[in-house]
């Protein structure tokens, strides 16, 4: 995620255009992530239905449960509100920044915008991670994550090279190793 600190460098070591490019790259990666998460959860339900169990999505230790439509609404809402916040940030960039000059008022709004997006993204991510964990614990035939990863990369024109490289540029060393393994394991077209 683009850091708000990078806005402090605008006008000194970087231009507002580079901030915009970073944001656009982030949006592209987030779209791919959203598609991947959505496909992943659709598969969970298919797998679940095939087990002829009740149509509950979560049935964890707390005995709370909720159904597919609520889960789907939550995830869709979470995704679309992140995109709405991102659009608002681009609106500020388009209308608030004149001749690449970043005045304090506009900078405030850009920092607020990125903070809101980061917060929303964390909400979204925690939800996905939490649901995944519950599925793994409660569904015996939980589908394999690598299928989603492979599908995600195969669905991209460049075979997922761009998104993997972008992730590597923004990941910790441990995660970079995992991403390298995915790249190595993936057969070349």
């Amino acid at each position: 995620m683009v850091s708000t600190e990078s806005l402090n460098d605008v006008g000194r070591t970087k231009s507002i255009n580079s901030f915009e490019v970073e944001m656009r790259n982030w949006v592209t990666a987030f779209f791919l992530y959203g598609d991947s998460a959505s496909a992943h959860f659709e598969r969970c339900f298919v797998e679940h239905d095939e087990q002829n169990t009740t149509a509950e999505f979560i049935n964890g230790p707390s005995h709370s449960s909720f159904d597919y439509s609520v889960t789907k609404n939550l995830l869709d809402h979470s995704f679309s509100s992140t995109m709405n916040l991102t659009q608002k940030l681009f609106d500020v960039l388009q209308h608030g920044v004149q001749k690449s000059v970043l005045i304090p008022r506009v900078k405030n709004h850009l920092i607020l915008g990125t903070t809101k997006i980061r917060s929303r993204l964390l909400d979204h991510h925690e939800l996905i991670v939490g649901l995944t964990r519950h599925n793994q614990q409660n569904l015996t035939a939980y589908h394999q994550n690598h299928i989603c990863i492979t599908d995600l990369m195969d669905g991209e024109a460049d075979g997922g090279e761009w998104v993997i490289n972008w992730l590597k540029d923004n990941a910790t060393e441990t995660d970079q190793d995992m991403l390298n393994e995915i790249q190595i394991a993936k057969p070349r077209n």
Binding site: I58, G60, S62, S64, S65, F66, S69, V70, T71, N73, L74, E126, L127, V129, G130, L131, H134
Partner: peptide, 19 residues
Amino acid sequence: AELMGKVEEVEKAIAAAIG
């Protein structure tokens, strides 16, 4: 309308999912 009846359920669901 359907969801309004499920607000509490949604709250519980998020809490159950994320901890």
